[in-house]
Computed example of a mutant assay.
Amino acid sequence: MNNTYRLLKDDMDFFLAALSQVRVSVWHVQEDGQHIIDYGGPVEAFSTVFIKIMGKRYFRNTFEFRTQK
């Protein structure tokens, strides 16, 4: 499958996204489809529990984080 996005998964992915200030979008993926939650922005902070984008915190184990290739 050839996606037009890159999925961010580990700390290094989020570190590089924060460093380069790329736009990261937030998605909620369910069995019946994918739903965009936030068109996003640059990563402001991250931990093992959450990602902070544009002043909002999103749980890493609940959402999917993507950047364009």
Rank of each mutant, 00 (worst) to 15 (best):
D11K: 01
D11T: 02
D11M: 02
M12K: 06
M12D: 06
M12T: 11
M12F: 12
D13F: 03
F14N: 03
F15Q: 00
F15T: 02
L16I: 11
A17V: 00
A17F: 01
A18G: 04
A18W: 01
L19K: 10
L19C: 03
L19D: 04
L19M: 04
Q21N: 02
Q21F: 02
V22W: 07
V22P: 00
V22N: 02
V22T: 08
V22A: 13
R23D: 08
V24Y: 00
V24K: 01
S25Y: 11
V26Q: 00
W27S: 03
W27D: 00
W27P: 02
H28E: 09
V29I: 08
V29P: 01
V29L: 13
D32M: 15
G33N: 09
Q34C: 13
Q34A: 14
Q34L: 10
I36F: 07
I36L: 11
I36Q: 12
I36E: 06
I37H: 05
G40V: 13
G40H: 05
G40T: 08
G40E: 03
G40F: 07
G41T: 01
G41Y: 02
P42I: 09
P42Y: 06
V43W: 06
V43S: 06
V43T: 07
A45E: 09
A45Q: 07
A45R: 08
F46M: 10
F46R: 04
F46P: 01
T48Y: 03
T48G: 11
V49H: 07
V49C: 08
F50Q: 14
F50N: 12
I51F: 05
I51K: 00
K52M: 15
I53H: 02
I53C: 14
M54D: 15
M54N: 13
G55E: 13
G55P: 14
G55N: 11
K56C: 09
R57K: 15
F59G: 05
F59H: 07
F59A: 13
N61V: 07
N61C: 10
T62F: 09
T62A: 05
F63I: 00
F63R: 04
E64R: 10
E64V: 13
E64T: 07
F65Y: 07
F65M: 03
T67L: 08
T67E: 02
